[in-house]
Design a binder for these strands. Structure first.
Length: 600
DNA sequence: TTAGCCTTAAACAGTC
DNA sequence: TGACTGTTTAAGGCTA
């Protein structure tokens, strides 16, 4: 099958064999699809930056193809020297057939160019591509323009020889497999778009059943990346399909290979590419941030200090007093597990702690970061990096207690939770343990309960919420809006969109939303984003044995009770207090009437 | 400037 | 007797 694309495929195969998988990717993406010749300067700056990128890819791809041809020529020369009789044995008939096929190949190349032009015109009509005024439209060049006839012959020979096996299996030679794997390296599925230039009529492409899709269905029945929850996940579709079979029918009928589908596919490719680009940029940004903080925190002083995220973030003078030795490593990303600290003896001493001064206010108190979310997401980071968690002792103690199945912990168990969850607390135990005890006694939100095992500590969520600074208490509407998920997702969405906008990603711009296709695509992406957020929450569930804080957030309270946004898991109070004794009175002033006695 | 919060340090008492 | 647990006080820094 696919003789034309076979040129790509063969070249790909060679590229892979030569360890040039990346070039293979480029070759497949742009080598023939867009039809730009090698070394050609783009005559049009198509609005979407990806076209320039695609052109570059095409050039690179053609270069790879040439290299492959060159290699092949060299190999043939070598083999020719070794076996001079080899070419002599080739019958004239076979040479004639090759010449005929070569002619057909060139004709198909020409057709491909026409298809490409039509495709781009279609995209342009749909507004998916913008061409700057004053520039010629669609400067597509003949595919083979940059290739000399000899190269074409070599390429063709390579194709014809390499696909003999495929030909014998009866594959359709005239079909062109424009597998949309240009960016599918990260895509979950590779949807094949099979074009048949011969069967196309007036530029309209005939539709073939996607083979890889079919295979995928056979292997994973009822599992399709474009199908979920009874809804077609094709960007902008969302058609309800009762079952998988109906979905397949819908897919083949509504999303056949036409201009619209291919345009959407290209847009999706753009989306994936831009997301990958965005990810790379954000990673780089994070790295820079961490590096920056590292430098900041290591500039002035030599006294060894553990990395204090709070201090670093706030860049207080305490932060600037940290030392390089205190940093076990420069974290690449908080969510990525770090190499376990293999440092020598503890660098934290009471003295050094004192030099740092009191720990600054935890950022969770300022930036509404749910402690459970942060701990869940950065669990490995905290476990391995000697980084002070940016939460108050009270918040950490509460979290430890709430993570326990019984919602109650002994002091020693709280200690263990601290040391288990945070590498930072594996050192200088005397200090922080004292602080833990101090906080347990100081805050009324921590209730000591005598049971069979001895004394355990529980959390009085009401008191805990009271304890929090009511920064937005005067704005009920704002409080209502600060529901945990919303408070969590909104900044992320905003950040994402801002970042997308920064990277000139049109899908998220207001203008692009006017385009139904793009708008639906953006909607689909947002849906995916929400899914990711749900996944994040589910991770929290995993991190918390027994019950997830976030699970407790949503069910009852979240829309009823104004919560302190800092503790988005505030609704835990229901669960937590439910575990208390029935006599538990939240309004009790424990300062006046110690609970210990009451509970005992 | 001030109040409230947080952290650290320390003293003290009770229990095991 | 020492370690652990729990309470309390004080001091200093930070933030709204």
């Amino acid at each position: 099958m696919m003789q034309e694309s076979g040129t790509e495929t063969k070249s790909n195969g060679s590229a892979i064999q030569n360890g040039s998988g990346g070039s293979n990717h480029l070759l497949e993406c742009g080598g023939l699809r867009e039809g730009r010749s090698n070394g050609e300067t783009p005559a049009v700056d198509i609005g979407a930056a990806d076209l320039a990128h695609a052109q570059q890819q095409q050039q690179q791809a053609l270069q790879v193809a040439r290299q492959l041809l060159l290699q092949q020529q060299q190999q043939q020369q070598v083999s020719g020297l070794k076996s001079p009789k080899r070419n002599d044995k080739q019958p004239a008939l076979q040479q004639q057939q090759v010449a005929t096929q070569q002619l057909a190949f060139q004709q198909q190349l020409l057709q491909m160019q026409q298809l490409q032009q039509q495709h781009l015109l279609s995209l342009q009509r749909q507004g998916l591509l913008t061409i700057q005024p004053g520039q010629p439209a669609l400067p597509l060049q003949p595919l083979a323009q940059g290739m000399i006839p000899t190269e074409l012959q070599q390429l063709w020979k390579e194709v014809t020889s390499a696909h003999t096996a495929e030909e014998t299996t009866g594959n359709n030679h005239s079909s062109l497999d424009l597998t949309t794997t240009c960016v599918s390296s990260s895509a979950p599925s590779k949807t094949s778009l099979i074009m048949n230039p011969h069967a196309s009529t007036n530029g309209q492409l005939s539709v073939h059943t996607p083979k890889r899709e079919s295979l995928s269905h056979e292997e994973h029945p009822h599992s399709h990346p474009l199908y979920g929850h009874g809804v077609c996940k094709w960007p902008g579709c969302e058609a309800v399909c009762e079952d998988f079979q109906s979905f397949l029918k819908h897919l083949n009928s509504e999303h056949a290979l036409d201009d619209r589908s291919t345009a959407q596919c290209r847009v999706q490719m753009q989306v994936v590419q831009q997301l990958e680009l965005q990810l790379a940029k954000d990673k780089e940004r994070l790295q820079a941030m961490m590096t920056h903080l590292h430098v900041k925190s290591t500039e002035p002083k030599a006294a060894p200090q553990p990395l204090n995220l709070v201090s670093s973030v706030t860049l207080s003078k305490s932060a600037s007093e940290a030392s390089p030795q205190s940093l076990p490593h420069t974290p690449t990303t908080p969510t990525a597990p770090l190499t376990p600290v293999t440092q020598g003896p503890s660098v934290i001493t009471t003295t050094s702690m004192h030099t740092v001064g009191p720990i600054r206010r935890r950022y969770s108190d300022k930036y509404n970061v749910p402690i459970s979310s942060d701990i869940a997401q950065n669990q490995e980071f905290y476990k391995n990096a000697e980084v002070r968690p940016p939460f108050t002792y009270a918040s950490l103690i509460r979290q430890a207690i709430l993570e326990s199945p019984e919602k109650q912990l002994t002091l020693n168990e709280i200690y263990n939770w601290f040391t288990r969850m945070f590498a930072y607390f594996r050192r200088n135990a005397a200090t922080w343990k004292n602080a833990v005890r101090h906080n347990l006694s100081l805050h009324k939100c921590f209730v000591r309960v005598e049971n069979v095992k001895g004394a355990v500590w529980t959390v009085d969520e009401v008191e805990f919420q009271k304890r929090r600074p009511q920064k937005i208490s005067g704005n009920p509407s704002l409080i209502k809006n600060m529901q945990s998920s919303h408070a969590y997702c909104t900044p992320l969405n905003a950040a994402l969109q801002a970042s997308m906008a920064e990277n000139s990603i049109p899908l998220y711009t207001t203008a692009s939303m006017g385009n139904p296709t793009l708008g639906n695509l953006a909607s689909a992406i947002r849906e995916e984003l929400n899914g990711a957020m749900e996944h994040t929450n589910s991770n929290e569930s995993d991190s918390s044995p027994g019950r997830s804080p976030m699970q407790a957030v949503h069910p009852v309270h979240v829309k009823e009770e104004p919560l302190d946004p800092e503790e988005a898991e505030g609704p835990l109070s229901l669960v937590t207090t439910a575990n208390h004794s029935p006599d538990f009175d939240h309004d009790r002033d424990y300062e006046d009437e110690p609970v210990n006695e009451d509970m005992e």
